[in-house]
Simulated scan of single mutants.
Amino acid sequence: MDALTRLHRSLAGGDDEEQPEDSILGDTEGICSLSPVQRVYGFAACLVAGLALMILSLLVFIRPIKFAVMFTFGNILAVGSTAFLMGPSQQLRMMLDPVRVYATAIYGGFVVLALIFALWIHSKVLTLIAIICEICALFWYSLSYIPFARRMVSDLMVKLCDTEL
């Protein structure tokens, strides 16, 4: 078994044993016949494109509406890039896991709000507020994948913001 297959199985929540046909690999083989190497290439391409859009969005920071659109689409590409590694259904299951369902909903809500404020309402202030909230929600969502990270950040914020001496 090659290293990429082991990586895919560890990200998909499997182990090193052979996967049964009703597993995520069995589900995706009929729909998507990408090899593990092609999946890593797809992941890398989406991640690089998303990061490039987010970095390029800083060039148009003066124009908040263009910034919001570029940053948000880059953000979506970067987050969605992991679907190549573990499959879209497994990623959706992980995003809707009870541990991170609220973070996913808040992040998705701010993505939609940022695009609405930028594309339909054309409000620079509301767009920037939505982008800041989107970044915070993505940070909180990302912490859910690291054991005890949310608790440590929460405790740190309480200590930093504590006004009692």
Rank of each mutant, 00 (worst) to 15 (best):
S33Y: 15
A78N: 06
I106V: 09
E134Y: 02
M86Y: 04
G80Q: 04
S144H: 12
L113W: 06
A118P: 00
P64Y: 02
S10G: 05
A44F: 07
M95N: 08
L138K: 09
E134H: 11
T5C: 07
Q91I: 03
M54L: 08
R100H: 01
V69H: 00
E21Q: 15
L160C: 11
V99R: 12
E29K: 15
R63P: 00
A3F: 15
A83E: 04
K66E: 09
I55R: 12
M54D: 04
L113R: 07
L138A: 12
I129M: 13
P147G: 01
A137P: 01
T82R: 07
I116V: 11
Y141Q: 11
I135C: 08
L92K: 03
D16R: 08
A105C: 02
R63T: 07
F148G: 01
S89M: 12
D16C: 03
F73D: 06
A12K: 02
C46F: 05
S123W: 02
G14T: 13
C136L: 14
D15C: 01
V112R: 05
P98K: 05
S33C: 15
K66M: 09
R6T: 15
V112E: 02
A114K: 01
D2P: 15
P64N: 03
G87R: 12
V79F: 02
F43I: 05
G50D: 01
A52N: 09
G87V: 08
S154Q: 12
I76Y: 04
L113Y: 11
